[in-house]
Computed example of a mutant assay.
Amino acid sequence: MPNLFRNVIKNSLPALGSNSRRVISSILLGAYLSHPLILSAGELHQHIEVKVLEGRVQASFCNPEKGCSLVKPETLGLPAGQMPIDQLTGTPIYVSEFSIFPDRTAIDSPGFESIAGDMTAGDRVRYRASGHLSYWSTDKRQWTLAPEGIQIRLAGGLDIQPNQDCGQVFCIPKTVEGFTVFNRHGVSSATSLIVGEVRANGSLHTHLDWIIESDRGASNAPAGAYMVELQLVTESHPVPSDSLWIMFNNGLPLADFQQAVAGRVLQPNTDTALADKLFNWAESNYPALFPHTTASFVALGYYARCYRNNACVGIKDNHIFATGGEFGPNIVTLGEFSVFAAQAGL
């Protein structure tokens, strides 16, 4: 079994450098020998299927009949056949579960997989990270922004950088490992890295490492469900895929994690009727910021409205965000949706 386990690790971490693979393999193997069931439960292990259709990258739930891993809806507390798709936005949600290791809390799922013939040989698949780190806890039982000091690090992605150190007229570019950090304020470090390179037969199978971290210590992030946002592109097909969300269970009993899933899939995360009342109230009371009445719409995970002065305001994870107009070019957080609604007397 240890030799088989080493082979599984070797095949599941192809995007990492050899030194990184050796270190992580030693950690995972030690965890397996001490707790042989820690990685074999695996009910929340799955792959994201990646393919190119009509000149654009598409990410979707994979087909287990083709040999990939897919979490059953019943495991998530959903009716049979109902995939985890956000009810308000239609965004697909891929689930995973952190495992505790001696020096970190991490997982290499979900992986990215393409079936032979689905992609162009040699093309490089990249992710684009966006949004904010979302959080669900058993005390509030509501999706909101992650606590301060908590982040998820996506490690093992690659980038190509110029190389001027070879002493020749033309130097082969360097391949370097990078990482992306998600927290309540957004995304930092590298916002786009290479997931992997398509094989000669047009297939892809690669895993990156998701690590949850706290400023109080590597493994001290609060128990709860966490969620991040990605899009996928390739170098040959730069138009990004639709957004996808990846939800992680960090220490919740399965019944509680199922409630976190239900808070997105079986009911809308935002009270749209209350949101419309708040938007109407803001238009009446702050015409300089919101100069006319307009209709609400759903975009990029937000329930939002936009105005002729280029300002847009949106609600997501019980927080209000704004951009454009007097808010400036970046997305800024204005505060909690429920607090604003209460202050408006709604």
Rank of each mutant, 00 (worst) to 15 (best):
P2H: 13
N3W: 08
F5G: 05
N7L: 13
L16M: 13
S25E: 15
S26N: 14
A31D: 12
L33R: 07
L33E: 11
H35I: 03
E49Q: 14
V50C: 11
L53V: 13
L53E: 15
A59G: 11
S60D: 11
C62M: 03
N63H: 06
P64S: 07
C68T: 09
K72V: 09
T75L: 12
G77H: 03
G81E: 00
I85V: 15
L88E: 07
L88V: 03
T91R: 08
Y94E: 02
E97G: 02
I100T: 12
S109C: 10
P110F: 15
D118G: 11
R124T: 01
H132D: 03
W136A: 11
Q142Y: 00
L145V: 00
G149D: 01
G157T: 12
D159A: 10
Q161F: 09
Q168W: 09
C171G: 08
I172H: 02
I172F: 05
G178T: 14
R184Y: 14
H185Y: 15
V187F: 07
S188E: 09
T191S: 13
S192A: 12
G196Y: 08
S203M: 02
L204T: 06
H207D: 12
W210Y: 15
I212T: 03
D215R: 02
S219C: 07
P222E: 03
V233F: 00
E235A: 07
S236G: 15
L244K: 09
W245G: 10
M247R: 02
G251I: 06
D256F: 07
V265S: 01
Y286V: 04
L289I: 05
P291R: 01
P291C: 04
Y307M: 08
N309D: 01
A311G: 01
G314F: 05
K316A: 13
A322N: 11
G324P: 04
T333W: 01
F337N: 05
F340I: 05
